[in-house]
Computed example of a mutant assay.
Amino acid sequence: MTEMLSLPDLSHASWNRSTFPPPTQGITEVAARERFGNCLSTFAAKPDLGPGRQQGSRLYVYRSGVIVTAPGDYVGAYAWETMRVLQYPPSVESGAGYRSCTLIDPHGNAVALGPGGLYLTRAARREYGITSAVQGSRILYPSEWGPYIQKAVAAAQLNPTLLRMARGETIDFGPLKADRIGLHDSEKSVAWQDIADFDLSHRTLTFNSPCMRPVLAATDTYKIVNIHLFLTLCRTLTP
């Protein structure tokens, strides 16, 4: 049965009460062009990054996506329906201690948000189809905007993904691929009906048979594209 997803109510979110400046006219024009709807909130970079370094960096959250500004006059628009996300958290499910993520648009333009770098080698960038990469800023409140982005992507993409699979397509989640038959990694395949459950621990994902034996090699969660969408898909299709 298809899992029904909806975005969380933001009316009581702590960052909804932020005092960050609203979108500029230029950002508003980008949002209108992308048909993102109204702006829900604005996140800014940490104020201790030094004069002129990243104070102008922003994460604008809209109804249908986000707009990111970064050093070097970078402006990127990422829609819930088409973006890919790589997440680097200690806890995928709770968002506790959320560190950073990389957003990738359909053209391969990537921007990293949060502390640290893109966490991607050249080979990994080729694997994920990244054609350009920008290091964003340490945007405040990552434990709030990070899980929200993942949930919004899952809500927007779950049903279209299921329809694509029903038409016989294989969906690429990075090291794991999914189709209407089951899951596949680089070495093995397993049918959905042969997956009893899956376990998230120590930043890895393991799939188990009814005998509680692993049926696929453990996978690092930070390598899985759109991890929340992927986990929701697994919950929907496993017995």
Rank of each mutant, 00 (worst) to 15 (best):
I130A: 05
G56F: 00
I104W: 05
G72W: 04
F36S: 09
T82M: 09
G52C: 03
Q25I: 14
R122N: 14
H107Q: 11
G76C: 03
V30D: 07
G117K: 13
P21Q: 04
G76E: 08
I27W: 11
G50V: 02
A44F: 01
P22I: 00
P90K: 14
T69C: 01
S94G: 15
T82Q: 09
T69S: 02
Y141R: 12
G117V: 09
G146D: 03
Y98K: 03
T121H: 07
P147T: 04
Q55E: 13
N38A: 12
A124R: 05
K46N: 15
I130H: 05
D105V: 12
Y62V: 02
F43M: 10
Q150M: 11
R138Q: 13
A112M: 10
V68W: 12
P147D: 01
S41Y: 03
L113E: 09
G72A: 02
A77P: 08
F36P: 04
S94A: 14
L59I: 05
A31E: 13
E93A: 15
R125Q: 15
T121C: 05
G26L: 02
G97Y: 05
R138N: 13
Q55F: 00
K151Y: 12
L59P: 06
R138G: 06
R63H: 09
I104E: 05
L118W: 15
R58A: 01
Q150W: 04
M83S: 11
Q55C: 01
Y78W: 10
Q54C: 07
F20M: 11
A110G: 00
N109G: 02
E34N: 10
P115F: 02
Y62D: 09
R53G: 00
R84V: 11
G117Y: 07
T24Q: 09
V111L: 06
G136H: 14
P51M: 00
E93L: 15
I27D: 11
V75L: 10
V85N: 09
R125C: 13
A45R: 03
T24N: 08
D48S: 01
G146M: 07
G114F: 10
R126G: 00
S132W: 14
T69Y: 01
S91G: 10
P23L: 04
P23V: 08
R35L: 06
Y60T: 00
R122A: 15
